[in-house]
Design a protein around this nucleic acid. Structure first.
Lengths: 195, 195
DNA sequence: TCCGGTATATTCGGTGCCGAGTATTTGGGA
DNA sequence: TCCCAAATACTCGGCACCGAATATACCGGA
């Protein structure tokens, strides 16, 4: 069976190994240093599972088992040609084709009518605040990276996320206002249902 | 151990049962009719797992095992008081607290520098088109629901998604333009790396 | 030199999720 | 009335994912 592009952690592994050979723990370290785990979920269990799977499909190979100092043996992996091809092709697919995703918030907001309007307004305002804080934090981080001399291309995903956060906040502001004024379509029966 | 709010499908089950008792298969049907599966991932295996889990935590109860006609026995469930409380509380949490999520596109775009600029531009343009089509499709659906007399509150999640899609398209347009012109920060070394 | 906290590196059992598979019933066309 | 496709209703084995637990090595202070 051919390799399944499920866990993006596998993509990160391929990308890291295309720089230089590494052992799994080092991959994790590197991902942490570069704030990559902000974008791609990392945890040890999955990391080792994913590495084994990549190896089985010959996208990476165990290039050596070092034993530096008296440390426990560790397996160093390197990317194969097939692995590089897979990396590029997967990357193209991820960017070109919007994936069907299920953001938790959509699930929540779709059922907001089940809450009394007062409660709904309160929680939407809470989210508005929280998203505002995320925007500030992200702006700070970007400023910091910029100061460190990193080019925009190195934090392009943060730029994208910023755009999305701003859009979400605008929408929340609109919805909160419409709820407060009672101008959201269907408000009357909503309000009536909850007395 | 207390109930874990992992699978939003459990939320949908609680919401459906708060209308009237149902058996699992009927829940699935209803979700389909209402386009709820657009927002909450539905599949049979998970549905039955989730129902069993809700029952174990006494958030729903098997209220009857009908045997209408000669159909196979089916178990009808009803929500308990604890279940209603859980529904409302979970809902409040989902809306108020932004969840940490990992959109596939962020993973992809964060590594876009690994592709040659030409390829990158091509795939970004492909996505731009695809997102544009999603926007048109969604606008059509909304118009249709509006014509059917459904109030805005009944399709509020589509309104939200529309805002997000538009924001994404704007960002893609900006990035494509900046790449074409070579004005994205770090373009020169990007271009140089790939010759 | 002894002790303990931190860093290194991986394993492993449990769990939730998935979707293809099974079994029965209904409806409708020939 | 016979047959088959579609609808109804649920089951089950497999597998990816998770994160806590394990085991060893290093380093600094008392």
């Amino acid at each position: 069976m051919s390799f399944k592009r499920t866990n993006p952690l596998a993509l990160a592994v391929l990308a890291l190994l295309s720089e230089r050979p590494m052992h799994p723990y080092e991959m994790a370290q590197t991902m942490r240093e570069r704030h990559q785990e902000e974008v791609i979920k990392l945890n040890y269990g999955s990391l080792y599972t994913v590495v084994e799977s990549l190896q089985k499909h010959e996208l990476i190979t165990a290039s050596a088992t070092q034993k530096a100092g008296n440390r426990p043996e560790r397996t160093v992996y390197a990317v194969t040609d097939a692995g590089t091809a897979e990396l590029h092709d997967w990357l193209r697919e991820l960017i070109a084709v919007p994936a069907k995703e299920y953001p938790r918030f959509e699930a929540g907001i779709s059922l907001v009518g089940l809450l009394p309007p007062d409660d709904a307004l309160a929680v939407v305002e809470q989210r508005e605040t929280a998203v505002g804080e995320q925007i500030v934090a992200l702006a700070t981080l970007i400023e910091q990276l910029k100061t460190m001399g990193l080019p925009q291309l190195a934090w392009i995903e943060l730029d994208y996320r910023m755009a999305m956060l701003r859009a979400e906040r605008s929408w929340l502001t609109w919805f909160a206002t419409a709820t407060r004024k009672g101008t959201v379509g269907g408000y009357d029966s909503w309000e009536a249902r909850h007395r």
